[in-house]
């Protein structure tokens, strides 16, 4: 397999090129300037966050004591977590199906899978609002105990996340050498074993990229969540949206900082747990 060729020294060792390193530095700097500003301002005493007035941890205390904000964050993380798992599994299955099989109306089917990506968010939000209301799912689910009352939102998030996973995983699968699969079967592995030992490891970078994309989409979605949430199921973006219309308070910056720290730790942990498997394929 390709990535077994370790990038050694020589013409392909792009990782050590100075110009690429500089370019990298500049890009990451651009990406992070606003974030650093945001984190810095979470320690600011100025209420409107326009000028720097002094260091404080009060904003964190305030955010911590704001039960509504904490609840919204918990909801968001819960939704993003579950929606990511479901959409990664479903998305990967669809990608495998599209990659492996030939079937009638395949082009139409692919277009159909692309729909959630194509449609304006607000349109999908309103469509789901109509749907949940007309089928009674809104009333029934919103009244359930936590976390079941998040089901509507999770369903909606999966619906727009998994096609993204599918498209990313599929573009990874295109380069798969089917001979590997055949070799595996020739050597006596069952279909199932071949799937787990050969195809899944090959898909892994696609799966990771797809899952990250799904998590990002779910965690950040405002429009669709707004239309599918009830009074008991407010998420962080919905909360933030109603709050910042009167200016971003440092409290929100503090909460965002906490959220980012939590998600980073969770991701690093997940990557650590997954590490032994990864080392196997180089």
């Amino acid at each position: 397999m390709a990535d077994q060729l370790k990038p050694g020294s020589g013409p392909l060792d792009y990782g050590n090129r100075l110009w690429l390193k500089i370019l990298f530095g500049v890009m990451y700097f651009m990406l992070y300037v606003p974030i650093i500003t945001l984190i810095a301002f979470s320690f600011n005493t100025d209420k409107r966050g326009v000028v720097w007035r002094g260091f404080t941890l009060d904003n964190y205390a305030k955010a911590w004591n704001n039960s509504a904000l904490i609840e919204a964050m918990t909801n968001s993380l819960m939704i993003a977590f579950i929606a990511t798992i479901i959409s990664t599994v479903i998305g990967a299955m669809v990608a495998l199906m599209l990659w492996r099989f030939r079937f009638p109306f395949k082009g139409a089917y692919e277009a159909f899978m692309g729909l959630p990506i194509v449609i304006p968010e607000i349109c999908m939000g309103v469509a789901l609002l109509l749907f949940f209301n007309e089928t009674g799912m809104m009333g029934a689910i919103v009244a359930m105990p936590w976390p079941l009352n998040l089901a509507n939102i999770i369903i909606a998030h999966v619906a727009f996340c998994f096609p993204f996973v599918a498209i990313v995983v599929r573009s990874r699968l295109v380069g798969f050498n089917r001979q590997l699969e055949e070799a595996s079967k020739d050597l006596g592995a069952s279909e199932w074993q071949t799937f787990w030992k050969v195809i899944v490891p090959f898909m892994m970078p696609g799966l990771v990229a797809g899952a990250l994309l799904a998590f990002t989409l779910s965690l950040d979605d405002f429009v669709i969540t707004f239309f599918t949430s009830g009074p008991e199921t407010v998420t962080f973006p919905v909360k933030v949206y109603s709050l910042v219309r009167r200016g971003v308070s440092p409290e929100i910056n503090a909460a965002s900082t906490v959220l980012i720290v939590i998600t980073v730790m969770a991701t690093i942990l997940a990557m650590k747990l997954q590490a032994p498997e990864k080392s196997g394929k180089g």
Binding site: L31, Y32, P34, I35, L38, F215, T216, L219, D220, F222, F236, P237, V240, Y241, V244, V248, I252, N253, S256, L259, I260, T263, V264
Partner: peptide
């Protein structure tokens, strides 16, 4: 990572 901060806040 930057994209796990809410779009509006960003």
């Amino acid at each position: 990572l930057p994209f796990w901060i809410n779009l509006l806040i960003r």
